[in-house]
């Protein structure tokens, strides 16, 4: 779990790090949508170059980008394999018994491959350059129009930020309990189905008990510090929209508009 890059914040100071989280979330949404417009290889080329520029601007290392893709490779190969076999359009390129590969299948598969890579890298740029708390704050702001129809934006944001705060703590706890049970002879990677179920139970129950205990403690701590979700509160972190945010947003819109136009023209 230690080598995991996806979703991890990289504390650095870069142009992208300094951008407003609202802008980053909004841009990610726009870019994700444009990925699914079929603008051919030219379109993906443009998006690809744009993403590379973003990676450079965010001061991420190439190795970190590669690492973010790594955990997804198995899924990607799986998807590509089925695509290759099941799309049967265009000219037949290869025929080996029941294995038939068409040129359209090859192109479609390449598209999927590129889309997935783009999606992963874009998401990684967001999470690597935005502190979890800023991310929640951004989400809360973006959701605030829904407050009028009774959507509990503040509560949801608080829940997300507490969840994010406790993820490392609970991961640590999981490892600790796994080790404690391993010391009692549990083998998490081996054994019959029955033994496997037992080992999972020996992990899950203690984990739940401890999580509930923490939740109770945390609720007490929050309440004793005068927290009341319904009462008015001020917010320490204020989001300030800067000129650079506006310019960045225009750039993102331009790229997305370009892709959409391309897909219509093609």
């Amino acid at each position: 779990m230690n080598g995991m890059m996806l979703g991890r914040y990289l504390p650095m100071d870069s142009f992208i790090h300094r951008l407003d989280p609202r802008l980053k979330i909004g841009s990610l949404l726009l870019l994700l949508i444009s990925v699914f417009f079929d603008a051919g290889f030219i379109g993906y080329g443009i998006l690809g170059i744009f993403v590379i520029v973003l990676v450079i601007l965010s001061k991420m290392k190439l190795s970190q980008v590669v690492k973010s893709i790594k955990p997804m490779i198995f899924m990607m190969i799986f998807l590509m394999f089925f695509n290759l076999l099941f799309i049967q359009k265009g000219t037949l390129l290869l025929s080996l018994g029941f294995l038939k590969i068409y040129d359209q299948a090859l192109i479609q598969t390449a598209y999927i491959f590129i889309r997935l890579i783009l999606i992963i890298i874009m998401t990684t740029i967001l999470t690597a350059t935005t502190k979890p708390l800023d991310l929640t704050l951004g989400i809360e702001h973006l959701l605030s129009p829904f407050k009028k129809i009774g959507f509990p934006t503040h509560e949801v944001a608080m829940m997300i930020s507490i969840a994010l705060r406790f993820i490392p703590t609970l991961l640590e706890e999981t490892q600790r309990i796994m080790k404690a049970q391993a010391s009692r002879g549990v083998e998490f990677s081996e054994g019959s189905l029955k033994e496997k179920i037992m080992s999972i139970v020996s992990l899950i129950i203690p984990l739940f008990i401890s999580a509930f205990q923490r939740a109770e403690d945390l609720a007490n701590a929050m309440e004793s510090r005068n927290y009341n979700p319904e009462a008015k509160r001020t917010r320490y972190k204020q989001l300030i929209w800067k000129v650079s945010d506006t310019i960045s947003f225009v750039c993102v819109c331009a790229v997305c508009a370009g892709i959409v136009t391309l897909s219509i023209v093609l």
């Binding site: 705060r165 923490r214 403690d217 945390l218 007490n220 929050m222 509160r233 001020t234 972190k237």
Partner: peptide, 30 residues
């Protein structure tokens, strides 16, 4: 009040945010 378990009363994502939590509840000017 300071409780027993140091981990379970740390609400903020950072030290700064944790100290701010109580201030937010008291509606202090950011």
């Amino acid at each position: 009040i300071v409780f027993q378990n140091p981990d379970n009363q740390f609400i903020g994502a950072t030290v700064r945010d944790d100290i701010a939590f109580g201030l937010e509840n008291m509606c202090v000017d950011p």
